[in-house]
Amino acid sequence: MNPEEIFQDKIDQEIKIEPKDWMPEKYRQTLIRQISQHAHSEIVGMLPEGNWITRAPSLRRKAILIAKVQDEAGHGLYLYSAAETLGISRDEMIEQLHSGKAKYSSIFNYPTITWADMGAIGWLVDGAAIMNQVPLCRNSYGPYARAMVRVCKEESFHQRQGFELLLHLSRGSEIQKRMCQDAINRWWWPSVMMFGPNDDASPHTAQSMKWKIKRFTNDELRQKFVDICAEQVKLLGMTLPDPDLKWNEEKQHYDFGKINWEEFWNVVSGNGPCNKQRLDARKKAWEEGAWVREAAAAYAEKRKSRQNIQAA
């Protein structure tokens, strides 16, 4: 067998590919793109929720929200480390984010306008993320799969907390109910879009499935998500903003309305309500932190040379 065949054979037998193993260059590049995009999403995703940390309406909620946003930072960290095993540095990846070469999940280009958005993001956005990510715990690249196991545990916790926040609002005052429905209305379609283009418009799916860095197609995962949310929203006594949402007895799935792909592609390509704001915030943090990173590096260097002198 040639290296390519050995590689595919391992994948077919569900043996994990590890950093030192031979792998096709395209597999490496696809993984770098996918993992770094995922890492960037975690980091940019801290911003819309971070927006409410200072306004969280109770100390308990404040602590939960801070812990959640901090978890996302941790996810970013695991994922950057997993990507680094493929031969790219964290600084290079961050550079690609800032230059616009690397993408992040478009969902974070929507604004968080009310407190209820903290619930809707947990329920729908973390919910959709879990749907995407659980299969990734079994993806063929070892470091990525192991990172995803840790990530998924925390994401399902986030989703439950988000739902609980909305449930609380849904049983509260008129204004709280209104906040709850309004947030669901705004976050529903962007969440449905999180699964990416329809399968017929997703050219890389077949190769990624063969390499087992993707286990289900976008539309399969999206359908699963819609089916679950259509039931859960009833517990909230709220509705999803889709007049075409209807149980289909024959298919044993929910039918749902047309996705606005024009909006999706516009947000992806930079025209979302907060694209500029999010990227500017990331760049600002990075640039303003430059002197701190330089100081830490300079100090570490000084210490090392002092220790060398002592040792000599």
């Binding site: 980091i43 801290m46 911003l47 971070g50 940390i53 200072t54 404040k62 801070i66 946003v69 901090q70 930072a73 941790g74 970013g76 960290l77 950057y80 915030a281 600002k284 943090a285 303003e288 932190g289 430059a290 701190v292 990173r293 830490a296």
Partner: peptide, 15 residues
């Protein structure tokens, strides 16, 4: 301190 969350100079210190 929580105002730093998401804006720290490097990820580890943000955490």
């Amino acid at each position: 301190n929580s105002e730093w969350c998401g804006h720290g100079p490097v990820l580890e210190q943000d955490i």
